[in-house]
Design a protein around this nucleic acid. Structure first.
Lengths: 194, 194
DNA sequence: GTGGTTCCAGACTATACAGTCCAGAATCGG
DNA sequence: CCGATTCTGGACTGTATAGTCTGGAACCAC
């Protein structure tokens, strides 16, 4: 019928996600998005809607990517404790750039207007998903007797909180050793019953 | 010599702090600041400098207030474990408005431009101060044999991270029970050696 | 009073930026 | 070739907002 799209919307979205990730919503201008995505203004509006819609799509992309990766790792690894250790020590070992960039969704949570129900609900849903992934893994740990029979839901929440706190700390100062100290303490829950 | 200031700069600063606290830097307009502080544009600029300078003063005010309060509580309470329990369960028990407002400095960290060295250094310094307060308390706990002889610096960092993570979680969803579950797990470090 | 200072209210400027519109070239199917 | 669609690039609009400036009233010390 007509000229087909010349760019790959998937790749363009990934580019936009990376920019939002580094700069946050407010500090990412359309100019910068156009440059980074390699497309013109109109193509952007035609394909993704306005800036906010693009942002929400980027959040979805981020969520799917990171969650499926985490889930896969936690499912495949024999020892659940090793899985969480990998999560936490892996975070600690990221580069300075990665630490500064932080977590797109944590940033979204603290940058959003308190009354923004759309973003809020998205993030709540995501938190529930991550908790579910963790809960499932922790339940397996208990079956394997890696973990005393504590409440897996509480532990799952604890790890979500720990990771978010570590992300905040890493963003402020990329200090691997400090982060590893925290990881070590947090992983102590696998040794003790609460 | 002249007409004296009619408003109390201290009170005006506290008002500004509260507004920044609720809305964040970007979403707080000068209009709103003038209204909330009860002073005119020029008085604001004459007394506090520009918006950013006011923001930095508000951050300082916040830091002094919260840190001295924490320090006092941790010094006075007999059991250090009870002190941290009070911190964490107190956070969990805050109102929905307080949870939404969160922590001014955590928000500042995640809202700031990555290249903003002034805010970054301020926040790093503050983190060091809070860690020092916690470290001191935890060292006392070990002396009192409330705590196995782990590294107090690591534990201090762990609690800083936990509180920040809980703040992020609370901002997203004001769920007291969920927060208490996390607090309970975190306080488990007082029972086990890592 | 007088002079110096602070107050308020509001006008004004400058800037940044999201979103729309337009012109013209490029690319397809038929 | 032709019509439809997408592309680029740039112009344009509208809006929000930080910061400056002005005029005039209120207040104080001397």
């Amino acid at each position: 019928m007509a000229r087909p799209k010349e760019f790959d919307p998937e790749r363009a979205l990934a580019k936009a996600m990376n920019l939002f990730w580094r700069l946050g919503y407010e500090n990412t201008s359309l100019e910068a998005l156009m440059r980074e995505m390699g497309i013109a203004r109109q193509s952007l509006y035609d394909t993704f809607g306005d800036k906010r819609a693009l942002y929400l799509k980027a959040m979805g992309h981020y969520r799917d990517q990171t969650n499926s990766q985490m889930q896969k790792m936690l499912n495949e690894i024999p020892s659940v404790r090793d899985g969480f250790a990998r999560l936490l020590y892996g975070l600690a070992a990221e580069t300075r750039e990665q630490h500064e960039r932080g977590c797109l969704l944590l940033s979204a949570n603290l940058q959003r207007d308190a009354k923004d129900a759309v973003v809020r609900d998205f993030l709540r849903d995501n938190q529930a998903r991550v908790e579910a992934i963790f809960r499932q893994a922790l339940a397996r740990a208990q079956k394997q007797e890696e973990l005393p029979p504590n409440d897996p839901a509480a532990l799952a929440r604890f790890f979500v909180v720990t990771i978010q706190g570590m992300r905040a700390m890493a963003r402020l100062k990329s200090d691997r050793k400090a982060l590893e100290q925290v990881a070590r303490v947090a992983l102590g829950v696998f040794n003790s019953s609460a």
